[in-house]
Structures are given as C-alpha cells and as structure tokens.
Nucleic acid binder design. Structure first.
Lengths: 213, 213
DNA sequence: ACCTGAACACCGTTCAAGT
DNA sequence: ACCTGAACACCGTTCAAGT
C-alpha cells in the first residue's frame, strides 16, 4: 500500500530536517526512510545514494542564501561589509558547513559573495590578476574563519593551554593578553586588516614589495 | 596463543599507518585489529574507543611537529615566515587536518606557531589585547586557509562556475581574471596583506579607525 | 592485567522481484 | 516508472568469560 507518490523534493525536505536537527552524521538512509514512511531502497531511486543526496542538500542551501549585498561608503568598508554578511549567512546554517566539509564542496560557500566582491574590488581600483587575487583572498579568509570557528565550537572543552603559552613567554608577558577574544571582533579586525593590506598594496604594486625570501 | 604483548604505542603506530594511507575514515577498529593480529576488543582495552584513539593521534602529530622558527629581518617578514612555516608543516600532514576536523580539535593546529608568534608580535611593537588579537588573526588565517585548501583538493572536479561569475560581471570583465590562482602565491599575498594591515593599524590605533557601521 | 569470541544494534548498497 | 524485502558486507561497542 504505497502512500502518495514519493518525490525527490520530499526526500530532500526530510533530509534537510534530519540534518538540521543533529548534523549530517545523523542523516542515515534508514532513518530517512523511516521518516518518510517508505522502504530504504525507494530513496535510492530518487536521489542515487547518500553522497549525491548530501551534494543536493548543499546546492539547495547555497541557492537559498542568495547574493550578499554590500553597504558602506568607501570601497574598503563595502568589502568588509560583504565579508561580514557572508559570515553571518554561513553561521546561520551550521549544518551547511558540516555537510560541505564532509563532501569537499567548500568553494560552494564562496559563491554568495562572489559577484559582489568582484564588483567592489573593481570599484576599489584593482584590475586583472590583482583583482582576482583580492576576491579569492577575502573568500578564503571568510570561509576559513568560519570553518575554524565552527570546528572549535563543536568541542568547547579544550581551548588548550592558551594561558600557559602566554606565560611561557614570561619576559614579555602582558596581563591584557588574558584570553576570551570575542570572535566577532577578531573577525572584523582581521578582515579590515586584510582589506587594508590588499588595497594599499595596490598603490606600491609593481615594484615588488618590501619582503625578501 | 597471544603474540608479544600488545602496547598502546603499538596500537597508535598501526593506527597512524592506516590513517596515512587512506585518511581517518579508513581507520576502523576491525581493520586495525587485523593489522595488529589481535582481537578487536583488545584495542579497546588499550585506547578506550575510536574517538579517543583519534584524539591521541592528533596529539602525537602535533607534538611531532615541534615549534616553528621565524626567518627574515623585519618583524612583518618574520611573522609572514612563521605563517608559511606553519602552512608547510600542516600541508605535510594532510591526515592530521582531516582527523582534527573529525574530532573538533582545530585549535591544536595553532600551537606549533603560538610561542613564536607571540614573540614576533611583541617585537613588532604590539602589546596587550592588540598583540593577542594579531596572533589569533594570523593563526585563524593560516589554519583557515589550509582547511579550505585541503577540502577543495579532495574534490578537484568542481571549482564551479568561476568563469561564469566573472563573465556575469561583463561590463567590468577582465581577461586576466581567468583563473587558476596559484594557491601558494595567494596564501603569501594574503598573509602579507593581513600582517601589513595589522601592523600599520597599530600606528593609528587609538582613534578608532575609518570604518563606520 | 590483559586478551578473547559472541552478540547487539546499527550502517550503505545491490538486486531480483513486484506493480 | 516506481516501490519492495531480503541479503551482503560492513561498522563501533559491550560483556561475560577466559588466562
């Protein structure tokens, strides 16, 4: 006695719900089938296998995010605002981050900010390879930051020996080095520093920079 | 007929070998037992369970890395050299990156560069919260970069629609935006930009910076 | 203290068979 | 075209039992 015909969309919907509850590891084909009231094997007919199911979920979530809109007046400020926007969107979908990592689809997370970054980087006066590199730099920065951030949130116990290490440097120890380090603040300051560096670097570009080695 | 007594170290050694071959997903308690010529359950006596086994492997690998030594003359150049060194060490241990992510121990990868970064950031004239933030910024930058880099290497097929997106921005399209983007070059330039930004930011610090919002 | 086999409760996937 | 149950080849972990 089959229920109303099972659709691919229905499968994706139920899978999304499972992943949102306890992460992608808890998404098993058998639990999904139970949730849908079908045989496990029906799912295979609609979505192939577990891997392509996860891929489809990633694609869905990325599309659902839409493009990120800049705000602010200076080019630097606008680029920073896009970085903040992307981080906010990604952090609002923690399951996405986990799925993406399980499937090796990291660069999908670049997409929502890509067009805007290209535009803003051009507006800031960068062109060609330098513009492309600036866009990539910001994308890596934001996505990398979110990956690290999420991963350490998952295991909140450790944050190991931080104060020990500061203390080991006893000669130059500094009480203000204490710790917690507001991650929002750290993020914004890092992005600002990066963007400043990328844009001012543009000025003195051709002559090859002050770094040896 | 038990073989020569099984030791915890022997277990860790064999586990490391398995992980190095095909990544942490291929490390199963049963394969490990087969490799060691013991019953699966013996392993549990020595290392607890699979999770604590992975934790032990992470710890081992981090210790094996040792501290990262700076080179270069200016403070900025020395910080950049530490970032490059940390990336090189981490990339030399791809299995570590995967294990760390599976176990949520990201911040362990900060450690090999921590003391050196504290020292160099102080040498660059930063103090207190500003110094701590600079260290964190570089650690997040390097580890985040490596996570993204490794993850996209795992699934080399896609790198999706990059040129499409550049083209969509047709008005400001730029042939040099083409693509491959040497990851080594991107990394070094990003870190330089970040470090420049962090250090020059120090000068104009107190007055609150040019960014609204 | 250390090791064992049997058993439990899971997995993803395939396949021949149904309608 | 869509769905099914049975079966295969795996998992991690527990536990009572051995030495």
């Amino acid at each position: 006695m089959p229920r109303t015909a099972l659709t691919r969309d229905e499968v994706l919907e139920a899978a999304t719900a499972l992943v949102k509850q306890h992460g992608p590891a808890s998404l098993t084909m058998r639990k999904l089938a139970a949730e849908l009231g079908t045989a496990v094997t029906s799912i295979y007919w609609h979505v192939g296998n577990r891997e392509s199911l996860l891929d489809a979920l990633v694609e869905r979530t990325i599309e659902e995010m839409g493009a990120i809109r800049p705000s602010g007046r200076t080019p630097a400020a606008r680029i920073v605002s896009v970085a903040r926007g992307l981080r906010r969107e990604l952090r609002g979908r923690p399951h996405l981050i986990a799925m993406v990592h399980e499937r090796g689809l990291t660069e999908r997370m670049f997409l929502p900010a890509q067009q805007t970054l290209v535009h803003e980087v051009h507006a800031a006066g960068l062109r060609g390879a330098r513009a492309a590199e600036a866009v990539r730099a910001v994308q890596f920065q934001v996505v990398g930051y979110v990956l690290v951030e999420r991963n350490r949130e998952r295991a909140p116990v450790q944050h190991p020996g931080e104060e020990d290490l500061w203390d080991a440097e006893s000669a130059e120890h500094d009480p203000a080095l204490a710790r917690p380090a507001d991650p929002e603040r750290l993020f914004v300051n890092s992005v600002r520093a990066l963007v400043d560096g990328l844009l001012t670097r543009a000025d003195r570009a051709v002559s090859g920079g002050p770094y040896p080695q």
